[in-house]
Amino acid sequence: MSPTTLYLAKLMGAYSLFAAAWLMWRREAALGLVDRISNDPVFESMIGTLRLSVGLAIVLGHNRWGGVLEALVSLVGWIALMSGIATMFLPTGTLRRAIVWMRFREKLSLYALISSLLGAALFIGGVTA
């Protein structure tokens, strides 16, 4: 396993675990941030730019699909890249409609659980490989 894969797995895993904890412990702040971002074209563009940058960095530096951990790291990179492109170039309000469609407010605990499971898998994979 490459050192890049292990580093990115630990980084993404730790970030996902912290994000999940933040979603649960600071629920109102998280919902307020999501509302603010999804209702402001400037914030929406900024988030798209950040997603694009992170996705490009991962895809250009780590586009490996040989093992489960490598594939998971690469998949997260491609998802970040595609969501960044979509957020930047789809019409304003698309992000807001996606959040409503996902029922983010009602299913916040589920999304936090998914984030924590993904984070745990990545972090443990990165530490134990």
Rank of each mutant, 00 (worst) to 15 (best):
L6S: 10
Y7K: 02
L8T: 05
A9Q: 08
A9H: 04
K10I: 06
M12W: 04
G13K: 05
G13A: 15
G13Q: 14
G13R: 09
S16F: 11
L17Y: 10
F18K: 15
A19C: 08
A19D: 12
A20S: 15
A21E: 14
A21M: 15
A21V: 15
A21G: 11
W22A: 15
L23E: 08
L23S: 07
W25E: 02
R26T: 06
R26C: 10
R27W: 11
R27Q: 01
A29G: 09
A29E: 11
A30T: 12
L31M: 08
L33P: 07
L33M: 04
L33E: 05
V34E: 07
V34Q: 06
V34C: 11
R36N: 13
R36L: 04
S38E: 15
S38F: 04
N39H: 12
D40H: 03
V42M: 04
V42W: 01
V42Y: 08
E44H: 11
E44D: 15
M46T: 02
M46N: 11
I47K: 10
I47G: 06
G48Y: 09
T49G: 14
R51M: 15
R51P: 03
L52M: 08
V54H: 03
A57F: 07
A57K: 10
I58L: 13
L60Y: 14
G61H: 09
H62E: 09
H62L: 07
H62T: 06
N63V: 00
R64V: 11
W65P: 01
W65Y: 13
G67D: 13
V68C: 08
L69M: 14
E70P: 06
A71W: 02
L72C: 07
V73S: 15
V76T: 14
V76I: 15
W78K: 05
W78M: 11
I79Y: 07
I79A: 09
A80F: 12
L81Q: 10
M82G: 07
M82F: 10
S83C: 03
G84H: 01
I85A: 00
I85N: 06
T87G: 07
T87Q: 13
M88V: 07
F89K: 10
F89V: 15
L90D: 01
L90C: 02
P91Q: 09
G93D: 00
G93K: 03
G93A: 02
L95I: 09
L95K: 01
R96I: 02
R97H: 09
A98M: 04
A98R: 00
W101S: 04
M102W: 11
M102D: 05
R103D: 13
R103E: 14
E106Q: 09
K107P: 03
S109Q: 01
S109M: 03
S109D: 05
Y111P: 00
Y111W: 13
A112Y: 01
A112R: 02
L113P: 00
L113N: 06
I114A: 12
S116A: 13
L118I: 03
G119D: 01
A121R: 08
A121H: 08
A121S: 12
L122I: 04
L122Y: 05
L122G: 08
I124L: 15
G125D: 10
V127G: 09
V127K: 02
V127F: 13
